[in-house]
């Protein structure tokens, strides 16, 4: 057997090492060696992250593409978020009321619902919806660009496809998803107010006052910070899956599908880590 030798350009660098690992991967795939494959894939992800990070701070930032993506992500998911946000608030209120009523603590209802929406429901549900909508969209779009050689066409047009395609998407997701979460929170609270008003009537001002006497700054900030990570995760996974799609047409579907699965899973895991960290503070 021949010993693996990295190409000249690959020697002497972390990137070279990772590139080397990647090429070993082709052999591993042929032999279906699980552990090697896992290592290869991890190396691949790290390599991709490094490239994205490098291109993020490069001189020619693609502003136009960035704004286009912000619009795509923000505007196109808005109806979906509006409906879910309001319904979550409404349902949560209706479900919680009997429990609180048993303790005669119905006045706590707005506060409790607000806390659970702001801390958990708003961020996680919005992120999961975006993982489905935005993540799969990116996976499919970049995947089909890969399959039809458009990404290669960009490379030969003196444009770094990671800079032009991936960086704006990841940044746009990182920025827009927190905004969507804030919007979902607001609608959730409105929905909750509607829920309270199904039985009895409470003025919005009173409801608002009751809600925000319970919610404080410390509920808000960590919940907001984690949404930036959700956004980054969704953008990154969507782009990674699309950018690394296979060669046939069916790999577009595979890319979109696994983008959703992996992004959703990572959102939940990120949430768990974020909660652990907040808990320690």
């Amino acid at each position: 057997m021949k010993i693996y030798r990295p190409a000249m350009s690959d020697r002497r660098s972390v990137k070279g090492l990772l590139n080397g690992t990647m090429r070993l991967g082709e052999k591993a795939k042929a032999q279906k060696d699980d552990i090697t494959l896992l290592l290869i894939n991890s190396a691949d992800v790290v390599l991709f992250m490094m490239r994205v990070a490098k291109e993020t701070f490069s001189r020619d930032f693609e502003f136009k593409e960035f704004f286009r993506q912000c619009f795509q992500i923000g505007y196109k998911t808005l109806p979906l978020i509006t409906v879910t946000g309001a319904i979550i608030g409404l349902v949560l209120t209706i479900q919680t009321r009997p429990v609180l009523a048993d303790f005669g603590a119905e006045s706590l209802l707005p506060g409790m619902v607000a806390v659970s929406i702001i801390r958990e429901m708003g961020p996680v549900i919005t992120a999961l919806i975006c993982a489905g909508k935005v993540g799969s969209g990116m996976g499919a779009e970049l995947g089909s660009m890969k399959v039809t050689e458009q990404i290669e066409a960009m490379e030969v047009s003196a444009t770094h496809p990671i800079r032009f395609l991936v960086v704006p998407r990841v940044l746009a997701a990182t920025l827009m998803i927190p905004i969507l979460v804030l919007y979902a929170d607001a609608l959730g609270i409105l929905g909750s107010w509607a829920g309270v008003n199904i039985k009895g009537s409470v003025s919005f001002v009173l409801f608002f006052y009751q809600a925000f006497s319970v919610v404080d700054f410390l509920d808000f900030i960590p919940a907001l910070i984690k949404t930036f990570f959700f956004g980054a995760v969704i953008g990154f996974v969507g782009c990674y899956k699309g950018y690394n799609a296979g060669r046939g047409t069916e790999s577009v579907g595979v890319a979109a599908n696994s983008a959703v699965v992996v992004a959703s899973l990572l959102v939940i895991i990120t949430d768990m880590i974020a909660v652990q960290i907040t808990d320690m503070l």
Binding site: T148, Q150, A158
Partner: peptide, 18 residues
């Protein structure tokens, strides 16, 4: 990058940006 600017490449699939 500099070299690629001097080379034109017509892709088999056309590769127009859709």
């Amino acid at each position: 990058g500099e070299l690629r600017k001097k080379v034109g490449f017509l892709f088999q699939s056309g590769a127009l940006y859709d």
